[in-house]
Design a protein around this nucleic acid. Structure first.
Lengths: 188, 188, 188, 188
DNA sequence: TATGAATGAGATTTCATTCAT
DNA sequence: AATGAATGAAATCTCATTCAT
């Protein structure tokens, strides 16, 4: 009845489970009791690992931020590929559903100082754009704003498939078109 | 201390105030007590007009849907302007902050059947795109998907100004560029 | 089943009941559920009047402080009596059991800044002593320290009767003796 | 990370640490986790030595009682000194801060039967007073009550120095004065 | 129409205690 | 002797909802 695990493993289990439930039901609709029931442990154990529900949320956001940071950096620092490859990798990262937290932005903004999370993201995107401009492969106006717009718009599309049928070819084509890249550079 | 108002007026007051608070703080983070305090009435009055918080939310969504419907129809049925003018009007509607409900999508999906609301919106947008195609002024691939992507991306940009400086000229230029319209048709 | 009272009355009821239970059982040993059960209301009502248990404790301390302040001031400002009468009134105030909160001093010091509460008390006592000295009726060394010592010592004696038999005559005699007042000035 | 100690030594370590924390924060405000953290051992170890928190408290009280007993007896049975010396020793014992448990009296009364502890103390004090009376050095009324009052009052003064400046000379003088001893017998 | 005190189910949080290692 | 993850009962707190006035 009592299954003991190494603390780090258990903590990650709580984080992963919470993350999944939060993504499914939102922060407010997920109770601590839901989380511990799902894992199959006592409520007290949750508070052994996290001081409060708010601290858990902060930890998840922090974790997500770190994961994102790692992915983005690995893409940007990739020496081999040029701008086209980098934008491809960026896009695939985006389209990979389970790597995106559908966070209740309201709550995030209450918790983390808006700077830390969002701005970091912007900084990386700017670097990507810079590469495109330096390689003379990106000649549009407002490249940063356009890219942000494009990525957020795509995120929405991918999360709300509805009756539209969006596949990899579709959105890569849309990116070529939106960034005014030569047709086929992303879609081969 | 007891101000009586005609029922319909009072009901609208509650709806408008709730809507504002919900947009600011989200559904879950807005308490009934917040709403009545903001208006300056007693809690009981809220329940005189609405059976429950959920009914209020439904009413707001319904109201928003109707307003949107009206606006979109008036734009689309405008016989005078062509595609360029229609897309301009659409855009201005979008950029007008307080006409957009930043809905906690999680909750909406719990309440309304996912189809009804979003599909309507899509139907109208399709009609707009059709006009552009028919007038031979829209020659991009995946016009509907691109337009949805563009509008949602713009919505994000406008709501998160941060250190980017986006004004009307900026986003109209971005629209021309994204939809591959001749430069200047929207920005004059 | 639902008895409504004017808020101020209800708030005082909660304060008075809590105070009694706190005095009987201490802060930590008195649960909110004890308080509301004693009054016969729902738990939620408690939180309608007090944001938290800590706020209640602060309110009680504040209330006690104010009551004490009033009593002390009325004694000191009494124009008729001289030092003897004032010290008599002071003493009677002290010996009146239910006017003394047996506060867990530890907790108090955590909650109120130690200055506010205790120092006020000292200020008043100093004034009393000053009167005695001015009237040349108090000729001991360290009059303030001695008086504080005496009052706290008496407080202890009165709260712990044990097998000692202390009545009014007894402690008045002890005061005369401790302050080196002429025998009989307090005991007639 | 695992330091083994002889059981008796470890038990004393727990007792001493608990005692310090209880004195600082009170019984209720000191958690078992605080105690073991302070010592640097695991929670389980506490329960290896004590069945429960309550048993620890009882043990501390018992220990304190024994220590007090020893000290008092050594003072009273001292054949050499007379009353003056004995009262001096008593006083110095009192003024030695860490020898006084600031016990949450509420809790004590719940745990130990009120008689046992306090009465012992009273018994010893009575013996001291008896010595003074027999030696004809103590001629006040209610000598026991006055002495208890005096000691408790002094305890308070010594624990709440605040803006009063109390040193050994001060309180010895106050004792001489309160017990109506000839000036100088304690202060040399 | 309007009031706001009162309710109560259910959420979060605490912490003494247990137990497998 | 010692560890510390795990337990669970019980405390505090929240807030949508009710109801007597």
């Amino acid at each position: 009845m009592r299954i003991t695990k190494p603390p780090e493993e258990r903590k990650q289990e709580i984080l992963a489970t919470s993350r999944r439930l939060f993504e499914q039901n939102g922060f407010e609709n997920t109770k601590i009791s839901d989380i511990v029931k799902e894992i199959g442990v006592a409520k007290g154990l949750f508070y052994y690992y996290f001081k409060s529900k708010e601290e858990l949320i902060k930890a998840i956001i922090e974790q997500y931020k770190i994961e994102l940071e790692i992915k983005i950096k690995s893409i940007l620092s990739n020496e081999e590929g040029g701008f086209y490859q980098k934008i491809l990798l960026f896009t695939d990262m985006y389209s990979n559903q389970n790597e995106l937290l559908l966070l209740d932005e309201q709550l995030i903004h209450e918790i983390i100082d808006s700077k830390s999370f969002e701005i970091d993201w912007l900084v990386h995107l700017k670097k990507l754009i810079e590469i495109g401009v330096n390689e003379k492969k990106l000649n549009i106006k407002y490249p940063i704003e356009t890219t942000i717009m494009m990525f957020y718009g795509l995120k929405y599309l991918l999360e709300h498939p509805k009756d539209m049928n969006i596949n990899r070819f579709t959105y890569l084509t849309m990116i070529e078109q939106t960034l005014h890249l030569p047709m086929g550079v992303l879609t081969k």
